[in-house]
Write a protein that binds this DNA or RNA. Structure first.
Lengths: 114, 114
DNA sequence: CAGTATCCCTACTGATACTG
DNA sequence: CAGTATCAGTAGGGATACTG
């Protein structure tokens, strides 16, 4: 065996996990995913409040990347004051669902350690 | 609702995913996990060859962190030349298993996009 | 309200050389 | 073989102020 690469996989991509890791790699992305999963439509300020510690810049750039990756949808209503609603796309919902076993593992570990 | 924090969860830990993300956060960790899963015992040089591009320093530090996190076991045989074998702990094996749906999501996405 | 625009900073990663 | 030690580079993240 030469490397772990799957045949036909893009260079540096081995088993699908790294593809997924690139998409959820940002520090807050899984939490954004989670927040959007709990409630189908969230506004920018809502997300900011839900993620204590995140800055506007980081939230905005994460959302833009997730939108570009096709896991988050964005709808802007032409109102005053402005209103923008973020949601999971179908792919984003499946991504979030695929994270559930990982979350279960983390919960168990957190509970074990207090 | 104030935040996404679970009751009783350590500060900044929300749904278990972030706990898990901390453990697999290093750039190569999921791939190390994968390599150790494919073959129960791996030597240092073997892992280095399996992960083209990783440097010795990064591989060593990742392995030490994963050992400290209790997901990788290390056995050093007192021989000449030295031999060290790395393996998944039970917890590491469960972690790896919990990554499988995520890997499936990534594989599907990679296949869709070529 | 929903973002940009700047500036900064350090933690992670990497290259290279060396050692028990 | 299985690692350290040292030195740098950089990208991601953060603080703050400002805008349509």
């Amino acid at each position: 065996m030469a490397t772990l690469n799957r045949p036909g996989a893009p260079d540096g991509h081995i088993c699908g996990i790294d593809t997924a890791m690139e998409v959820i790699g940002g520090k807050w992305k899984v939490l954004i995913l989670w927040a959007l999963h709990e409630h189908p439509y969230r506004r920018f300020g809502e997300l900011r409040r839900l993620l204590p510690g995140i800055t506007e810049k980081v939230l905005a750039s994460h959302l833009r990347e997730m939108e570009a990756d096709g896991i988050v949808g964005r709808v802007s209503y032409d109102e005053v004051p402005p209103r923008v609603e973020y949601s999971l796309t179908e792919d984003g919902a499946r991504l979030n669902a695929s994270l559930e076993p990982l979350a279960a593992w983390g919960r168990e570990r957190a509970d074990r350690q207090g």
